[in-house]
């Protein structure tokens, strides 16, 4: 505490800008994860195990692979994502850090977008690892530009609603159980559109048949992000 204040006083100092706060929260999550590797390693191991179990459980004829692959992929992403979302918010809650974030004089939506950005990064890293492993195991080419775009859009939608619901679930004692129960019914439109659009690209369907699903996916992304922006403050405050 300096009596001869060198910098601006709290009353004259401009608050942290929205984007600065967003990137500060995301940077903090990524820096902490780089040290602990707690969250990413759990997500990765879990995702790879799910892929392996599917590989042993269902013997797929090559002709069936384009139809089944999107389902297997999105189930894997959704399960691994839930694990990450839970952990990401639990880290904030267990040491009281969520209060530390909420005490900052920033628009609380910036905290949501920062957490969302870091969760999205973790999910994309898992996907980057899972896709080649799946390609090898099932001998299926997944490196289709359209499919990668759908995975990005689907992940944004998933993380947008997942981050919001995780911040609700983390306030309860049953957070580990509660998040999937809250999340999966709400995320159905995103998963459905993502699976259909992914399948379309893998089956080589014309763009006219895939576009409605992509539009739906993009619309849900925008809606979920807008809703989260509006309600996050109420969700985290007692």
């Amino acid at each position: 505490m300096s009596s001869d204040r060198k910098g601006p006083t709290p009353s004259s100092r401009p608050p942290a800008s929205f984007s600065r706060a967003v990137f500060a929260v995301a940077w903090k999550d990524l820096a902490a994860e780089l040290r602990s590797r707690e969250l990413l390693s759990a997500m990765l191991v879990f995702a790879l195990l799910v892929i392996l179990i599917f590989n042993f459980a269902i013997e797929l004829a090559p002709s069936l692979r384009p139809t089944v692959t999107p389902g297997v992929l999105w189930v894997t992403f959704a399960f691994a994502g839930t694990l990450g979302l839970n952990r990401s918010m639990a880290i904030e809650k267990d040491r009281g850090c969520l209060d530390g974030l909420l005490l900052a004089p920033v628009d609380r939506a910036a905290i949501y977008f920062g957490k969302m950005l870091s969760n999205l990064t973790f999910m994309l890293i898992v996907e980057i690892v899972v896709l080649p492993v799946y390609s090898l195991l099932y001998n299926t080419n997944l490196f289709v530009p359209g499919l990668l775009g759908v995975i990005l859009l689907g992940s944004i939608g998933y993380v947008a609603v997942g981050t919001l619901l995780a911040s609700m679930a983390v306030q309860t004692r049953t957070r580990d159980v509660l998040l999937p129960i809250l999340l999966f019914p709400v995320i159905v439109p995103v998963l459905l559109s993502a699976v259909r659009a992914s399948g379309g690209f893998l089956q080589g369907l014309p763009m006219e048949q895939i576009r409605p699903w992509i539009n739906l996916l993009a619309a849900y992304d925008v809606i979920f992000l807008a809703v989260a922006y509006m309600v996050f403050d109420q969700v985290v405050e007692e």
Partner: peptide, 16 residues
């Protein structure tokens, strides 16, 4: 912006 808060929880990140 004008408030400092200390609780019995440190509100700090262990991995930083």
């Amino acid at each position: 912006a004008r408030l400092g808060v200390v609780t019995h929880m440190p509100l700090l990140y262990g991995d930083l």
